[in-house]
Design a protein around this nucleic acid. Structure first.
Lengths: 341, 341
DNA sequence: ATTAGCACTCAACTAAATAGAGTGCTAACA
DNA sequence: TGTTAGCACTCTATTTAGTTGAGTGCTAAT
């Protein structure tokens, strides 16, 4: 049996209707809803076929049909093609003031959640393949040295170092020069043991400081572990009865709050080199445990200098994919353009 | 009518029992539960009195009694006196590694939530009455200057300034000296308009940079707006049926997620000078809208150099106050001692 | 002052009845 | 051959009535 045009139209009608109501949809509804001018009996026959093909299923014998994951998948794939061009031009300016990055991203998450009425997440950009730009040691107290490390993309990291002996201005200057001449422009991979020991040798009795600074540098460049994820719109889970029973809601909200699992999702997304566009995970396709009853739609944005992050929407399987995709594309464009202006 | 010893014992028994079960408790239960050796009829009489006094109430005519806010209040006040000394000695070391502050606080929130089985919040310390310790301008790029500002308590703030003309090393050094000599050791209040204009004059054509730096300083010292609050244990709301119906849960979780209102709670708490210990808000006493059905228990911790923060538990009114107070005191002590070691 | 006893109340549960949405199948129709 | 009307059937959801049981207030006896 093949999925012909009419069958797809019926499937689409079922899905659209189910998206709205959240209730299983029956043959009579479709018969009236569509402009196919078919009786409910004919629809029933077609629905039996669609069920056999695995696109829809019945919660129980005498209920209407609901879309299966496979059904959603087909629908989404077709829809994505259509929407591709629609977003191209609508690049209004939603992001008011270019405040600090974290405020901005928090704001973005909030906006996404508000616009879509689903739960939203925004990951801070990951700094991949980054190079050291600048190091500065300054004396703050007699025994405290502040190390400021600036990495490509203007990521700044501060570390306070405690030193035993008091350092003279001259020594400090020397160390600054030593660090900058050796390390500037290098990536994490390029700072090898040979280089480090050479530097330590030159630093003489101050090699401890050099070691500390290098540790800090490593941490600043890596910055993997504290991948920040901003979430918003948790309450929207309650809008969809199929997610809102205690068991499920509790699990969902925990997953959403802990962010550990979301973080893995983001990592996967970013690791996938050829993933440039929108990613849709339906039901069991999701890599996130505890969100099997949801759909997740993500997009990857890229700032200047190879900083990549992920934005995403989490909602019921019957989410309004069109709206969600539109919103994500919009925000993705916003973020992509952010550093180009 | 007076609240005598016996009446209080019955009230206490009612509350204890209600804390456990969450169900209205009847006279017969109390008659057996306590060692007062009174019949249920007698208890009934006393309960009628207690209700008249406003300490307990009936959800409906033929149900048992539940504590009113006033009842909880009395119970908590008495309990607090008793528990005061008990915590004094138990200062185990729960906080493993002294990582960065934010990790530690996140951890603390998690631990609180896990231990108490309620929702927990931990605010990052506020830096009140803080003084400027150190300023450093460094050139990163041709047109980019990095300003590092260190405030008492080693709070560090970075700002990237973009400059029109390229600055020479010499100019930069001059500006550094200018800023440090004028501003170091001053608090926000002490940096007045006269001082600022004097500095601008000395800076000559570079007065724009001075202004920018001063703005950054103001922000660094204030740091009010981005009061960080870490939360954990949202899912615990679901453990208590009286909080878990959709309407309420949705509201609660939003409040908890948005943190705006929590932030106000923290501010109030910190502003209250003579609030050194544990604060308990029962039901309508809470300053946080949308948590009228909850109790909130908070404690204020204080790090070195006048940095204060708040930790708190949010749960149903029938929360296990004893456990909560114990846990909060413990964590408070941990945090208080953190910088003394 | 305390208590046993009784009539009364009311939420919560149970079981049966009913309604209604939806299906599959069959036979008739174009 | 594809479409449709019609009917018997299924199954959930809702309603209704009846039952249970915990708990109360009041009264009269101890």
């Amino acid at each position: 049996m093949q999925l012909d045009e009419r069958k797809y139209k019926i499937l689409q009608a079922i899905i659209r209707n189910y998206l709205e109501t959240g209730e299983p949809v029956g043959s009579r509804t479709i018969s009236k809803y569509t402009d196919l001018n078919l009786s409910s009996a004919t629809i029933r026959n077609e629905m039996a076929d669609l069920e056999e093909l695995g696109y829809i299923l019945q919660p129980h014998t005498s209920a209407g049909r609901i879309p299966s994951d496979k059904g959603y998948r087909l629908y989404v794939d077709k829809m994505m093609e259509e929407k591709e061009r629609e977003v191209e031009e609508m690049k209004e300016n939603l992001l008011e003031k270019e405040g600090k990055m974290d405020h901005l991203l928090k704001q973005a998450a909030k906006m996404l959640a508000a616009n879509t009425e689903y739960a939203a997440m925004v990951s801070a950009p990951q700094y991949h393949h980054n190079k050291l730009k600048f190091i500065q040691l300054s004396r703050v107290d007699a025994n405290q040295i502040l190390a400021v490390i600036v990495v490509e993309g203007n990521v700044i990291k501060n570390t306070m170092l405690t030193v035993e002996e008091e350092l003279s201005d001259e020594t400090l200057l020397k160390l600054n020069i030593l660090l900058n001449t050796h390390l500037n422009g290098l990536s994490l991979e390029e700072i090898n043991l040979g280089l480090i020991s050479a530097m330590k040798q030159q630093a003489g009795i101050h090699s401890v400081i050099v070691a500390d600074v290098i540790d800090a540098v490593a941490e600043a460049i890596r910055a993997d572990e504290d991948l920040e994820i901003y979430t918003s719109g948790t309450k929207n889970f309650f809008k969809y009865p199929e997610l809102a029973d205690h068991e499920r809601a509790s699990e969902l909200i925990t997953t959403f709050e802990e962010k550990q699992l979301l973080s893995e999702l983001v990592q996967d997304n970013l690791a996938d080199e050829n993933n440039t566009g929108i990613q849709v995970y339906i039901g069991n396709e999701t890599p996130v445990q505890g969100m099997r009853d949801c759909s997740i739609v993500t997009a990857t944005y890229e700032l200047d200098e190879g900083m990549k992050g992920t934005i995403g929407i989490i909602g019921p399987k019957r989410m309004d994919y069109e709206k969600v995709v539109k919103n994500l594309k919009l925000l993705k464009n916003q973020l992509d353009d952010l550093y180009k202006k």
